[in-house]
Design a protein around this nucleic acid. Structure first.
Lengths: 152, 152
DNA sequence: CTCGCTATTGCAACGAGTCGCAATAGTCAC
DNA sequence: GTGACTATTGCGACTCGTTGCAATAGCGAG
């Protein structure tokens, strides 16, 4: 799939890069193609793997550096999964968050309203503006809490 | 400093381990000594380094495995810093959380009340019990927000 | 004190990133 | 087109952890 025929905002990435004095390279093209075919969240390692699928000569550091640039363009946003590993949000839209139950291992998303409520609770007195989507919050889901009476 | 002369809960670790069918080893002793001299939060790498200071033959995997065991005893709790790296809370007491400003790089703690408020906001409809202290929340502090009019 | 069971260690290899640096190759100007 | 300027790449080394496995060594029993 040619990058030019991808939907926005992917098709204009090359121009946006050049306008900033940055360059459009085959390696970046590969990353864009992969991102256009992804959605929601993908780990860094997974993105590297998919790039390698399109171009076996892909080097990890190049992918990560490209992702840094794309983050500056607002096309991805990086965060961390429950194990602290790099995780990328493709085309970050509404504010949202991630919950992970350490007992059953399940993961949820929380939507805009709740994410905003949490941000408000956190802003509190000192005005800190949290990016709730950056991390994966860990805890225990209602089912697991109910299932266990006393377990740390 | 002999472990036996350390204050509780450190001095009783050997017994607690044995009672569980686990063992008291020189390597674990080293970790305990280091933990007793630490407070608040320490990264995994830092702990390994300090252990190496007491015993040059310290092996990282042994330290991490010991920390896992101590977490089961409730003596430490692991979490992740702003970069997703392993971070340990020594003698976790009150619920608390961590904030990190991605712009100025400063880090704060939030106390029990606010941490509880956030947990409440998050619990919301589905009853998820978050361990707010597990991760370091990232965002921007009030000063940096004020200082910047328009910066993603 | 000795024995045996098995928890723990040390080691080596691996996974996920990050970083510095020399070589390569986009881009823009002419 | 050609050239020069410099952003980017590829590579190697390194950090932080994790895991499997064979060898070691706690610890309770007798």
């Amino acid at each position: 799939m040619a990058v030019e025929s991808l939907p926005e905002p992917w098709s204009s990435v090359s121009d946006r890069l050049r306008r900033r004095g940055l360059r459009w390279t085959p390696q970046r093209r590969t990353v864009i193609e992969v991102l256009a075919g992804a959605d929601g969240h993908v780990t860094g390692a997974e993105l590297v793997e998919r790039c390698r699928g399109r171009d076996a000569s892909t080097i990890p550091s190049t992918v990560y550096r490209t992702l840094d640039v794309l983050e500056e363009l607002g096309l991805v946003r990086h965060g961390h999964d429950a194990n602290g590993r790099e995780e990328f949000h493709v085309l970050p839209a509404a504010e949202h968050g991630h919950l992970h139950c350490r007992q059953c291992g399940a993961t949820w998303e929380i939507g805009d309203e709740r994410a905003t409520a949490v941000a408000a609770a956190l802003r509190g007195a000192d005005g800190f503006e949290v990016d709730i989507g950056h991390v994966t919050l860990v805890g225990r889901c209602a089912d697991c809490v109910a299932r266990t009476v006393a377990t740390s």
